[in-house]
Design a protein around this nucleic acid. Sequence first.
DNA 1: GTTATTTAATTCGCATTCCGTTAAAAATAC
DNA 2: GTATTTTTAACGGAATGCGAATTAAATAAC
Lengths: 393, 393
Amino acid sequence: MRAINRFNVLDTIRRAGSIARIEISDRTQLSTTTVSAITASLLDDGLILARTEGDLREAAARGRPRVMLELNPDAARVVGAKIAANRMVFVVTDFRGEVLSTLTLALRVDRQPIGVIADLIEDGVRRCVVDANLALDEIDSVCLGLPGVIEHRTGHVRTSPIFREAGVDFAKEMSERLGVTTIVESDAHAITLAHHWFGKARDLDDMVLVSLEQTLGLGVLHGGQLFRGAGGLSHNLGDLVLGIGPQGTVRLASLAGESAILGDQPGGGRFAEAIRLGRGMAHAKTLIDAEDISLISAAIRAGEACGTALANIVTLFAPPRVILVGSSLALGQPFLDSLREAYSLAIPPSIKGVTELVFDQSTDETWAQGAAVVALRELYESPWGTTGPAPAL
Amino acid sequence: MRAINRFNVLDTIRRAGSIARIEISDRTQLSTTTVSAITASLLDDGLILARTEGDLREAAARGRPRVMLELNPDAARVVGAKIAANRMVFVVTDFRGEVLSTLTLALRVDRQPIGVIADLIEDGVRRCVVDANLALDEIDSVCLGLPGVIEHRTGHVRTSPIFREAGVDFAKEMSERLGVTTIVESDAHAITLAHHWFGKARDLDDMVLVSLEQTLGLGVLHGGQLFRGAGGLSHNLGDLVLGIGPQGTVRLASLAGESAILGDQPGGGRFAEAIRLGRGMAHAKTLIDAEDISLISAAIRAGEACGTALANIVTLFAPPRVILVGSSLALGQPFLDSLREAYSLAIPPSIKGVTELVFDQSTDETWAQGAAVVALRELYESPWGTTGPAPAL
DNA sequence: GTTATTTAATTCGCATTCCGTTAAAAATAC
DNA sequence: GTATTTTTAACGGAATGCGAATTAAATAAC
C-alpha cells in the first residue's frame, strides 16, 4: 500500500523531471502530509534529490519558495543494448535514463554461434561500462534488446534472426557471464518504452509502436504497461499473413522485411558492402533517389504491405497513436507514400480519425536507451504493477 | 484499501460459487480476522448469504463444520440482451448471473429506423422483466450487446449492421426510455465475459475470443479485464484486410461474414425464409450435408479466411486459449476443417503450441447472459479496477 | 525596517485498517 | 466427555493516511 503510493510519487517525479511536493500532491491526489512523508523516505534512500532553485512559476512568486525534487541520477546505473544483425549499440544510463556512455560496434553477428555472440555482447557491455568510468559491480542491471520472439519473463529467445539456434535461454547465459542481472527483451518493446519515457508518446499511456527493421516488431502500451502475450511473449509482425499465394502463405516479412526490400545483392558490390555495414537502407535511399527502378518498386511493395498490416493492427488495437520507427523509414517517399496510401485504403471507416500516425527516425542509441528503460522499470516498478491512477482531474 | 480487499473477497466468493471463510483467507492471503470482518460487512449489506450445509470436504469432517458463503442472488437484478439482425434475446439475471427469465423475439430489425428498434428493445426488456415477476424499478441495470463498433464508455454506437445510421448514442437513448442505467456493449465482448464467468475460460484471466456471426467480433481478456481500444472501442474483425484484390481491399467480412457465406438467396425461397428467421446457418448446414456444392465452397472459403485471420490474431496476442463462437460454427466440417487447416498453415512456428483452439456453440441465451455479466461487473468492480491478485500459490 | 501576507512544507493528533496472538464459542466426531 | 476444527471476539501493535495547526521562507505593504 505504501509501496503503491511510493511508486506513484516516484513515477510522478520522473515524469515531471523536476517538481515540488505540492504539485505531486495535486497530481497524485495524495495529501501533502503523505507526500512529505514519502518524499522524505525517498530522499533518505537517496532515490531523489532536493533543489532549492528552479521554481518556475510566474515571476511574482510570493510565499515560501518551492523546493524542487528530482530523481537522483546516481541512485542506479544500468546498461541497455540494441543487438542487431550487423551492429550492436550499448549505452550506460543513470537512474533517470540519461546516457552516460555509448558504444557502437559495427559487426555482423548474424547467425554466428551463440558463444561468439555472447562473447561480443559481454565485451561490449564491459567496454561501455568502462567508458562510463564505472565498474561492472556498480551496474544494477543490464537489458539486451534484440529482434525476434522473446519471452520476457524467462529471457528465453524463441527465435531471433541473429541466432542460429531456436530456444536459447539467453538471459541466464548473459547473467552468468556478467554477474549482473540481465534482462532480455524484444527490441521493439525497448523502443516502445523509450518513446513512452522520452519520445513521442510521453503524453500517452496507450499507444502502439511498429518497428520496421530487419525484423518487423510491435509494441503495445496499454495503461502504461507493455501488453505482452502469454508468458510475456513479444510479437513478431513479420509472421503476419497477408494472403495465400501460389507458394503458400505470404507473410509480411517476405514483402517488407529488410532482406525482402534490399534483395540479394552480389557479394562483392558496394551495395552488399553497405548492407554488411548496416548502411543498407541509407544506400538504398541514394539508389532510390537515383531512380533505381527495382528498388523503388520493392519499396512501394513493402510500403503497401506495411500500410495494410498497419491498418489491421489499428483495427485490432484502436490506439490513439501509432509510432512507426525503424531503418525502413529511411527509404523515403516511395515507401512512406505507398504505406500511407495503403493504410488509408485499408483502415475501416468506422474508426477513421481514432488513430494518429507518427513517423520517427530514432538513432540506434535511442533503442539502446529503451532497453535501459526496461531495466530501470524493473527497479522502479511497484510490486502491484500499477502505473498508478492517471493524473486525473 | 478495504474496498480492494472487499472486492477481492467478493470476487473470490463469486468464482468459487460457495466457499468457507477459511478458504477465502487461503486464497486471498488475508488473515482470517480480516476475512471475518469483511464477510460480516458483506452479509450485513446483503450481498452474500451463509449456508450451513454444503461442506464438501472428505466425509470424515471433524471439528466445527464450515459455513459456506455464497453470493446473495437477490442482491441485484440486471437485464442482459443480445440484439442481432434477425432476433433479440433477453434475460433477467440475479446477482450471481443466473438466468431468471428469458425472452426470444424472432424478428428482423435490420436497418429499421432507430426509433423502431428502440421500441422493440424497450418492449422486450419490459416483457422479460415482467416474466421474471419483477418490476422495472427492481432492475439495477441493463446491458445490451449488439454487433458493430461500439464505444463502451459512452455507449456510442459508431457502426452497427442493425442500425441504418452511424454514430448513435444508444446508451443514452435507452437509459432515458427505460429509466434504468443502460450499458451498450459489443456482443463479442459480452460473450467473452460470459465465458470468463461461466464458460470455457473460467480458469484463465488471459484469452481471446472470436465471434463468427453476422459480424465478426473479437474479445480480448487481459489480466481479467476486457482489452479495449481507445475510448473503450470494440473491435471489428470483419474490417480486417486479407489482401488487395482487383476491386480494392478484400476484407474478412466479405469472405466470412454471414451474408458472404449464405449469399443472396432469392426472396421467396425456403432458404431466404430460413435466413429471415435466423435459421440461415442451420439451413445451410442441412444443404451442406446434402452436398450443395456452392455452399460447401463458400464454407471452405470462409473457413480459410477465418483460419488465416485467426493465425494473425494469435500472432499478435499470443493468448493461451482462443475460443471460437458464433453461428458460423454450425456450418460443420467443411468450415471447421478448412479453418483449422488454414490456421495451422498460417500460424508461425515460433509460437506453435502457445495457443489452444476451442470451439463453442453457445446458445443465444449465453450471449444475453454475457451482457448481463457486463452489467454485473460494473456493480461489482472495485474502484481500483483490479481483478485482484491471482489465486496465487 | 518592521509587519503582514502568502505559499510551502512539516509536525502533531486522530481515525482507520490490517495483522498476529490468544482465547473463547460453536459444532461435530470419537 | 474429550478432541478436533472452524469461526468469532478481543487486545495490542504497527503502518498509513488525512486534517488542522504550526513552522518556514519569501515577498508586499506600510
